[in-house]
């Protein structure tokens, strides 16, 4: 037991280090640009005064390490700086939108994880059956669809007939239930795309295990196919399955951007696309850092969970 905590502590430290490096990459990326960032942003026609003002605003007159340090300490205190396009504090812009995006991602995850794990296990159990082949072909098709294609098909089908709204408009009076109803189509789009991936990977993880000698042993002990899968394969497949889930939830984060744009959903993805279009670099950096954090934390969680479920690591010799 002693070893496991050391291991988890090491993973946590490594995660912190990764986050630190990511922040450096996100910040440092602006340094890759040859020439002057201010001129690049304002174009050739800009006057010297406006250029100087922008440099002042971006803090370009200081050296890169100093600017990085200021930025990082600001971020750690919840201060991401000012948006260049709107002149508002970024933390204000991000605030409620972060909540909305997390809500959408969790909504989709709550639908996708149980469905895909069940389908994956069933496909592994009945492998090479009609069910397996059909679900495999369907999943492959779903993986191949761009998110906006799925989204528009759902709009055409479910929003045209007026069952669900195709846009998410929130007011003060919006209740959680309303919100669940309004966000159903975006959540369903994400679910469809992610479920396909997750199901295929779950199936592969379990089938991989079914070739193990201990599975043959379980069958030779006269255990039913269901018991073989649930009691003998699944406990060993936990680590790969946890990683599959983490990987796909991380994928959700990316998928959210496109889906938010299609459904005009007031989340971080929308904000980011606007910022990219306006080349509002501080906002893009802030949102990229938030997404990357979520991604790293998910992977870290998966890492720790799969360590805990591994008997070889839990019970040392």
């Amino acid at each position: 037991m002693h070893g496991i905590w050391t291991m988890i502590r090491q993973r946590l430290l490594l995660g912190m280090l990764t986050l630190f490096i990511i922040s450096a990459v996100i910040f440092g990326a602006t340094e890759l640009l040859p020439g002057d960032l201010a001129r690049e942003l304002l174009g050739q026609s800009a006057t010297e005064e406006t250029l100087a003002a922008l440099r002042e605003q971006l803090g370009l007159n200081e050296s890169a390490p100093v600017r990085y340090w200021n930025w990082l300490t600001g971020v750690l205190h919840g201060d991401f700086g000012m948006s260049m396009a709107t002149n508002k504090p970024i933390s204000e812009l991000v605030g409620t939108r972060l909540g909305n995006t997390l809500f959408l991602a969790l909504y989709a995850a709550a639908l996708a994880v149980p469905i895909s794990l069940t389908l994956g296990v069933l496909a592994a159990l009945w492998r090479n059956s009609i069910f397996d082949r059909a679900s495999n072909a369907l999943a492959l098709t779903a993986i191949s669809f761009p998110e906006f294609f799925v989204a528009y098909i759902l709009i055409l089908w479910l929003a045209q007939s007026g069952i669900f709204p195709s846009m998410v408009r929130m007011t003060e009076a919006t209740t959680t239930l309303d919100f669940l109803y309004m966000a159903f189509l975006p959540a369903l789009t994400l679910t469809l795309v992610v479920t396909a991936h997750m199901m295929r990977m779950t199936r592969a993880a379990i089938i991989n295990l079914l070739a193990s000698p201990y599975i043959e042993m379980a069958r030779l002990k006269g255990m039913s196919p269901m018991r073989v899968v649930l009691r003998h394969a699944v406990p060993n497949a936990l680590a790969p399955i946890i990683n599959v889930v983490a990987l796909n939830l991380a994928y959700l984060i990316t998928g959210v951007v496109v889906v938010e744009v299609v459904f005009v959903y007031p989340g971080l993805g929308q904000l980011m696309i606007d910022a990219v279009t306006n080349r509002d670099i501080p906002v893009v950096q802030a949102i990229a850092l938030i997404f990357a954090c979520a991604y790293v934390l998910l992977n870290l969680l998966a890492d720790v969970l799969s360590t805990i479920t591994n008997p070889r690591l839990m019970h040392r010799k």
Partner: peptide, 11 residues
Amino acid sequence: AIPALILSLLL
């Protein structure tokens, strides 16, 4: 460790 689409958008 940075999601692909996010990194692309940043760049």
